[in-house]
Design a protein around this nucleic acid. Structure first.
Ligand SMILES: [Zn+2]
Ligand SMILES: [Zn+2]
Ligand SMILES: [Zn+2]
Ligand SMILES: [Zn+2]
Lengths: 161, 161
DNA sequence: TGGCCAATGCTACACTATAACAAAGTTCCC
DNA sequence: GGGAACTTTGTTATAGTGTAGCATTGGCCA
């Protein structure tokens, strides 16, 4: 199933078209539910971000978008990215200033990202134990956590081999 | 002792001059040990970053530095920041594009940061349990972790009260 | 004295992101 | 259908963050 495919990394041979289709379908469904507009522009941007499992910079999105949308400018892209982030369809990778499709759109969450510095492939993983540890650490400091950024850089399993 | 003072947040009344002096002394000692140069310029930048317990942007550093160092330019600041990061005297807060003095300089580590979105005070905490959970999560994915970015934004204890 | 290396000076530029206002499209009510 | 209210997009300009590349300085050592 597509959902499963979406959770594989870029290294695994997989039908990436299914990843994209799955992401678009999920986004369409959620937008319909929520009564917000997944306009053609926003959908196109989502599709561009999902072109790979590597984080993509806003200006790379712009370059790609401009091929089919001549009037595209930086605000065009940033607005679409802001919308997609607000709806939880993409994440921003802060340590790269780049954006990545979310593999678990819908369920609000702050992901944990494993970023390969060699191939760029970035995997989003969920780890309840880790999230509990994060919550506990905040709590111990009397801190009301609202947003988490957890990004681990290194070498992915495939590049290490 | 100064080391203790350095670990308090900006809200706690504390002798912040001791924080700064402690950071500078530690840096001087470590640079001597390591045979690297803590030049007046680098020391001044370190002092500016330590002016508070809030992350400070590179261009804010530049503005401050320029008051005593007219020839300062962006590369001047970024080179100094790069040096200070390489030596482990400051951290970059990725989600803010800003820099913060390290409270545990010397011991190489990637800190966990609690960033108050109201007052800006940012606390660096160490949490072995959390670090173990991070290591375990990476390991489970077959990932060789090299660098960690863990930043939690929210409301600090003092601002919540 | 001259070569080497680290640090800084200096100019220009690349990359990332937002402000502000105008125009066009959508919704919804009458 | 008309029209107000709202959302989305167009457009220009600019703010904010970070580097490239080469010149200069100054210390150290052969
Ligand atoms: Zn895929
Ligand atoms: Zn890799
Ligand atoms: Zn202090
Ligand atoms: Zn606060």
């Amino acid at each position: 199933m597509a959902r499963g495919a979406a959770q594989q990394t870029a290294h695994h041979t997989h039908n990436h078209k299914a990843c994209i289709e799955d992401a678009l379908t999920t986004a369409r469904d959620l937008c319909a539910e929520r009564g917000v507009q997944l306009t053609p522009l926003r959908e196109k941007v989502l599709q561009i971000v999902w072109k790979s499992h590597k984080p993509v910079g806003a200006y790379d999105v712009l370059d790609e978008l401009a091929r089919s949308h001549k009037s595209a400018r930086p605000p065009t892209v940033y607005r679409a990215l802001d919308f997609l982030m607000a709806e939880g369809f993409i994440h921003k990778i802060e340590s790269l200033n780049a954006y990545l499709g979310c593999v678990e759109a819908g369920a609000p969450h702050s992901g944990l990202f494993l970023i390969c510095r060699k191939c760029g492939a970035t995997e989003e993983i969920a780890d309840p134990k880790l999230e509990a540890a994060l919550d506990q650490a905040s709590k111990r400091a009397g801190f009301q956590a609202e947003r988490r950024v957890v990004e681990i850089s290194g070498i992915c399993a495939q590049c290490a081999a």
